[in-house]
């Protein structure tokens, strides 16, 4: 697409939050504090921040698990403050959580995956095809009759993702979905997420693992309920001072780059992946 056409048909904001304020406690401590953030359709946005920075609170607004207390929010082009939109928004946004263990409603994969569409009133005859498509999308075709509790951690999370896909949402929200998995499981889930994004889903990934966010289109860093910074992963992750303020640590290559600089060794640019660092050191 040429830039001229792009300018005429800008990619719309599928999520738009303006001055969101949220407080759980009666003492008025704000978990979200005048937070404004937008997500473009088809974008892969990583949301980072320390524990308690408001990441999960924000995510829970996106499928209206939490009601907007103050501010404006549109999700999937629908006003989240209008109670009539709640179910339509939930159908458009699929959310996967941290712990694979407590997201299942059935012991059989197929039944578990049918639960979502059934609740949204999808005709019974259409459900098996949806289940098949969802399993294919997470690379687990043929697992229909398997027991959910006998799967590995990575497989469980992929089934949880498939469970969300059966409802055919436009926006996928992942709330620290890899933090409980072993490295092999992490890779399975990361690859699955990358594939779903390539196929056009809008992906919002909450994490505090910077290595995981390197592949995102954009990253947003939250701090104490506020938006501290937003930009490309390269812009944000090469700034150790910014990361430190957000309670995050820089990726290994960035840390090495800066520590080597401190020793008088200057590399031509700051790498954010191990591959880039390798090339710089082996030139």
């Amino acid at each position: 697409m040429s830039d001229a056409i792009k300018a005429e048909n800008p990619v719309p904001d599928i999520v738009k939050a303006e001055n969101l304020v949220h407080s759980y406690a009666e003492d008025g401590r704000r978990s979200l504090d005048s937070l404004s953030l937008s997500v473009k359709q088809g974008e892969f946005l990583a949301i980072l921040g320390h524990n308690g920075s408001g990441k999960t609170t924000l995510a829970r607004h996106l499928n209206v698990l939490l009601e907007v207390q103050q501010g404006e929010l549109t999700v999937a082009f629908l006003n989240a403050k209008d109670p009539a939109n709640v179910w339509r928004i939930r159908e458009k946004t699929g959310m996967v959580f941290q712990n694979p263990e407590n997201q299942f409603v059935s012991f059989v994969v197929e039944e578990d995956l049918s639960f979502g569409p059934r609740n949204f009133g999808v005709p019974e005859a259409e459900i098996p095809a949806r289940v098949r498509r969802a399993l294919a999308a997470v690379d687990m075709s043929g697992y229909e009759k398997r027991s959910t509790h006998l799967l590995s951690g990575g497989q469980k999370q992929r089934i949880a993702i498939a469970g969300v896909l059966t409802v055919e949402p436009d926006i996928l929200i992942f709330d620290e979905v890899t933090s409980m998995l072993d490295p092999a499981g992490r890779k399975e889930v990361r690859d699955t997420i990358a594939r779903l994004h390539e196929k056009g889903k809008t992906v919002i990934m909450i994490s505090h693992d910077i290595g995981e966010a390197v592949g995102a289109d954009r990253a947003a860093i939250l701090n104490s309920g506020r938006l501290l910074a937003v930009g490309t992963p390269r812009e944000l992750f090469t700034d150790p001072e910014l990361l430190h303020r957000a309670g995050l640590t820089p990726p290994l290559p960035v840390r090495l780059y800066h520590d080597l600089r401190g020793r008088g060794i200057r590399l031509s640019y700051c790498p954010i992946t191990c591959g880039e660092l390798e090339e710089l050191l082996c030139r």
């Binding site: 941290q98 620290e176 933090s179 995050l248």
Partner: peptide
Amino acid sequence: DEPTAGLDPLSRE
């Protein structure tokens, strides 16, 4: 048993 899973980087450190 996996005490740091889910902790943010500074809390982990």
